[in-house]
């Protein structure tokens, strides 16, 4: 089976997030950049499903600046077969990510598109569902378990109040939730091999997509800071505070 997996270059989730001095954006100078954690899970799932379903190909795609090559290489080092960088400098909203991916899908004709349930920088959680609608495909978001069998994907989803199971005809779009799997670490030979794997470069233009963002970020601010709390000595003091100061009991 053929898998297309998307990988976004994002700031490390362990890094401290700070606004630039002029508040024009989040400071990335000197900040470690990683593969969006959900996308890493998507890559892992594609690799496992490829093995389970008797082979095929895992193609990874990132849309971003030339720097995003590093994230594609790290997916190749995990074991993906081939990479596509759609080179675009500057902001791109989820709709245009989906439009670009739609074109890539038309070229590549994957059986399954695997993505992350959200990018941990913009926290939008939109691109996959938009792509599914543009393609007229079924979707399964927040996947916890995926079974590919009989021309369909049966997916257990992490829903509100429990686990929901849906089935989608192939091809379809699936997004990874945290508990879908635990991504492997790239091995040293994997990293070496990744350097030689094919990596094509495209542009939105070449794909016939004009990026005119329709979600425009006008500015950033720091969230309201909570006033500093206090430590209490023991249980009695805590109950007293909760009862008489916070009036929370």
């Amino acid at each position: 089976m053929k898998f297309l997996v998307t990988v976004k270059r994002v700031t490390d989730y362990e890094a401290k997030v700070k606004l630039k001095a002029d508040k024009s954006g989040v400071e990335t100078a000197g900040v470690n950049m990683i593969v969006n954690p959900f996308d890493e899970i998507a890559v892992e799932e594609a690799l496992r499903q490829k093995d389970k379903t008797g082979g095929g190909e895992v193609v990874v795609c990132s849309i971003g600046s030339a720097d995003a090559t590093a994230q594609i290489r790290s997916a190749l080092a995990m074991g993906a077969d081939r990479g596509i960088l759609v080179k675009h400098d500057g902001a791109i909203d989820p709709f245009h990510v989906a439009r670009v991916l739609q074109k890539v899908v038309e070229k590549e004709k994957p059986d399954v598109v695997l993505m992350g349930k959200q990018a941990i920088d913009d926290d939008s959680g939109q691109a996959a569902q938009i792509l599914a609608e543009l393609l007229g495909w079924g979707q399964a978001t927040s996947a916890n378990t995926v079974t590919l069998e009989g021309g369909k994907a049966t997916v257990v989803r992490e829903a509100d109040g429990g686990l929901e199971t849906v089935a989608c005809e192939l091809p379809c779009v699936i997004t990874a939730d945290l508990r879908l799997n635990e991504p492997r670490y790239a091995s040293l030979p994997g990293i070496m091999k990744a350097k030689k794997k094919p990596l094509d470069e495209l542009t939105p233009d070449a794909l016939g997509v004009k990026v005119e963002n329709r979600v425009v970020v006008k500015g950033f601010e720091e969230p309201a800071q909570k006033k500093a709390g206090q430590k209490v000595a023991d249980v009695a003091a805590l109950v007293d505070k909760l009862k008489n100061e916070a009036k929370a009991l």
Partner: peptide, 28 residues
């Protein structure tokens, strides 16, 4: 166009929303 998970309405086309796990608030 869509704004996800908004925390405030500024006007009919402008919204605030937490980003980067709520470390920053964006106006979109």
């Amino acid at each position: 166009a869509m704004a996800s998970d908004v925390s405030a309405v500024v006007d009919e086309k402008t919204f605030k929303r937490p980003m980067w796990a709520g470390n920053v608030i964006g106006t979109v």
